[in-house]
């Protein structure tokens, strides 16, 4: 644990220095990406024929559902990208070799790196959520009573995506070129986060199994549920934890599976990469 915190501290300092030193690039980068996202979202929901949303936002729930999926998808896209593209970039620059030779171990280093890297991701997601809630007439239930469930769901979602990222990262350690395939995986996660609703129960068995195995589906369903409907409807308690489709339990199971399997896979791949002589090199 101390090792992890020490690396987190080092990564925080490094990230902060780079962001501060290149502040203009940081600010303009954020402004451009947020601007594009917001324009994209607003442009999309203003085309009622495409999503069956009335132009006056009367059924803001559907639009919010779509927008939330977009944000969750972006988050998953970013976290997994830290493992795939991040690993490739570090291998090319030579920094990966130094990380591989850190006595803390590569798993601890990467976990700390992803946690720190995700802070900006989480912050940007929060800003987007706020913007979405303003855009859709405060339809989001970002209230105090929803804070704890949100925190639990976000933690599980992060652990879920982190585990999946470790698996992708392990593959990239051995087969560097899979970084390109990982882009497709990231896009699939992104699409799934948007598409995931309670309606997956109506999908055929195979599609349903695949959807539940993927790390983002149930996380997106649960998060959307809490943010759109809240923990109470008309004063009646209907917590996400007792969601009729069982999405929360799928999320919990998924989280355990991906975290354990992802880290195990990463360790196995790290050893394989050492045998192949490709560890740290591109």
């Amino acid at each position: 644990m101390m090792s992890f915190l020490l690396v987190v501290k080092a990564e925080l300092v490094r990230t902060w220095i780079v962001m501060r030193r290149y502040w203009f690039r940081t600010v303009t980068g954020m402004a451009i990406s947020y601007g594009m996202l917001i324009m994209f979202i607003i442009g999309f929901v203003n085309r009622p024929e495409s999503v069956d949303v009335p132009a006056n936002f009367a059924d803001a729930g559907k639009a919010t559902n779509w927008a939330l999926g977009f944000i969750i998808g972006m988050f998953a896209f970013g976290v997994v990208g830290m493992f795939s593209q991040g690993l490739q970039t570090m291998a090319q620059s030579g920094q990966l070799e130094q990380l591989c030779m850190s006595p803390h171990g590569l798993v601890t280093n990467f976990m700390a790196r992803t946690v720190v890297g995700s802070i900006s991701n989480i912050l940007s997601s929060a800003v987007l959520l706020w913007l979405i809630s303003r855009t859709f007439h405060d339809t989001l239930h970002a209230t105090d009573e929803n804070f704890l469930p949100m925190l639990i769901l976000l933690t599980l979602t992060f652990a879920n995506v982190l585990g999946f990222g470790f698996m992708v990262g392990g593959l990239v350690l051995v087969f560097k070129q899979t970084g390109q395939i990982a882009i497709m995986i990231r896009l699939a996660l992104f699409a799934l986060a948007i598409a995931a609703t309670d309606k997956i129960a109506e999908w055929n068995v195979v599609a349903r199994i695949v959807a539940h195995i993927m790390p983002i589906t149930d996380a997106a369903i649960c998060l959307k549920y809490v943010l759109i409907q809240g923990q109470k409807i008309d004063g009646r308690f209907c917590s996400v934890f007792w969601h009729p489709s069982g999405a929360f339990w799928f999320l919990l199971g998924n989280c355990l599976f991906w975290t354990l399997f992802g880290i195990l896979c990463f360790r196995v791949m790290e050893n394989w990469s050492r045998s192949k002589g490709t560890l740290g090199a591109y």
């Binding site: 090792s3 020490l6 690396v7 501290k9 080092a10 300092v13 490094r14 130094q98 990380l99 850190s102 006595p103 803390h104 280093n109």
Partner: peptide, 9 residues
């Protein structure tokens, strides 16, 4: 050096 020092414990 501060960064890599932390990585090296």
């Amino acid at each position: 050096l501060m960064y890599y020092g932390n990585l090296k414990n």
